[in-house]
Amino acid sequence: MDRSRRGATRRDVLTYGTALAASGGLAGCSSILGGDTADAEAGTGSYTVSMLPMGEVTFESPPETVFTRLTHHADMAFALGCGDSITAMHAPDYYDGLWNQFVERLPGVTLDWTGLYSSWKPSKEKLYELDSDVHLADPAWIAKQDAWSREDLEEVATKISPWFGNSLSDRHAEPALGWKAGYEYYGLWEQFEIVAEAFKERNRYEALAAVHDDLLSTIQSGLPPESERPSAVMLASADLDEIYAYTLDNPGFLTAHTRPLGPKDAFDGEIETNTVVDFEALLSADPDVIFFLGGFEPGTSLPKREEAFRADPVASEITAVQNGRMYPQGARYQGPILHLFQLEMTAKQLYPEQFGEWPTYEEGPYPEIPTEEQLFDRQKVAAVIRGDL
Rank of each mutant, 00 (worst) to 15 (best):
3 R>T: 13
3 R>S: 06
5 R>H: 13
12 D>S: 15
16 Y>W: 13
23 S>Y: 09
27 A>Y: 08
27 A>Q: 14
31 S>I: 12
46 S>F: 06
50 S>F: 07
53 P>V: 06
58 T>K: 04
59 F>E: 04
61 S>N: 10
65 T>W: 06
71 T>L: 09
72 H>C: 04
80 L>T: 01
80 L>I: 07
81 G>K: 00
86 I>Y: 04
89 M>F: 04
95 Y>V: 03
96 D>C: 12
98 L>G: 06
100 N>P: 00
103 V>K: 03
104 E>Y: 14
105 R>F: 05
106 L>T: 01
113 W>E: 04
117 Y>D: 05
119 S>G: 07
121 K>N: 12
127 L>T: 01
127 L>N: 01
129 E>M: 08
130 L>F: 08
136 L>M: 07
137 A>K: 02
138 D>H: 01
142 I>Y: 08
142 I>V: 15
153 L>M: 13
155 E>T: 11
155 E>Y: 13
156 V>M: 13
164 F>P: 02
173 A>Q: 14
174 E>M: 10
174 E>C: 03
175 P>A: 09
188 L>A: 08
190 E>Q: 13
194 I>C: 06
194 I>M: 07
195 V>L: 00
195 V>H: 03
197 E>R: 15
202 R>D: 06
202 R>V: 07
205 Y>V: 01
208 L>W: 03
209 A>V: 05
210 A>D: 12
210 A>V: 07
211 V>H: 07
214 D>C: 07
222 G>Q: 08
231 S>R: 09
232 A>H: 07
233 V>F: 04
234 M>H: 03
236 A>Y: 14
241 D>I: 02
244 Y>I: 10
245 A>V: 02
249 D>K: 11
253 F>T: 10
263 P>C: 07
263 P>W: 00
274 N>L: 10
274 N>Y: 11
281 A>Y: 01
281 A>M: 14
282 L>I: 10
283 L>N: 12
287 P>W: 07
292 F>M: 12
293 L>E: 14
300 T>Y: 15
303 P>E: 12
303 P>D: 09
307 E>M: 10
317 E>P: 02
318 I>V: 11
321 V>M: 02
326 M>S: 04
332 R>S: 11
337 I>P: 00
339 H>A: 02
346 T>Y: 05
347 A>Y: 08
354 Q>T: 06
354 Q>H: 11
356 G>L: 06
358 W>M: 14
359 P>N: 04
363 E>F: 08
363 E>I: 02
371 T>M: 06
373 E>G: 09
375 L>E: 03
379 Q>H: 12
380 K>Q: 14
384 V>H: 04
388 D>E: 14
388 D>S: 13
